[in-house]
Amino acid sequence: MGQNSILEKTHEFFQMCDIENKGFISRRDMQRLNDGLPLSAEELENVFDTLDSDGNGFLTLDEFSSGFSEFLCGQKIS
């Protein structure tokens, strides 16, 4: 995957979570994904806490994209 497509995917995924286009993802936005994704509310809570590196309760695109990069790195190793 090229750098541009990673950036594109990051934006796409961010927008899938930030459906109101606020520019950040709140804990409530994350819980809404419960309907569309095969993850439990607890798992989504866990994902949110993992991505929210500064712990302020909001996920910015920066935090989201570093989580996505970490995921991609893990994929490469395994």
Partner: peptide
């Protein structure tokens, strides 16, 4: 370091999350 351990445990959840987003995007079941 307890934070490192927690991070490792959460890696699987994170992978699960992004994989689900990928499947949702591509329309795979």
């Amino acid at each position: 370091d307890p934070n490192m351990k927690a991070g490792a445990a959460n890696e699987g959840v994170l992978a699960n999350f992004f994989n689900s987003l990928l499947s949702k995007k591509t329309g795979a079941p």
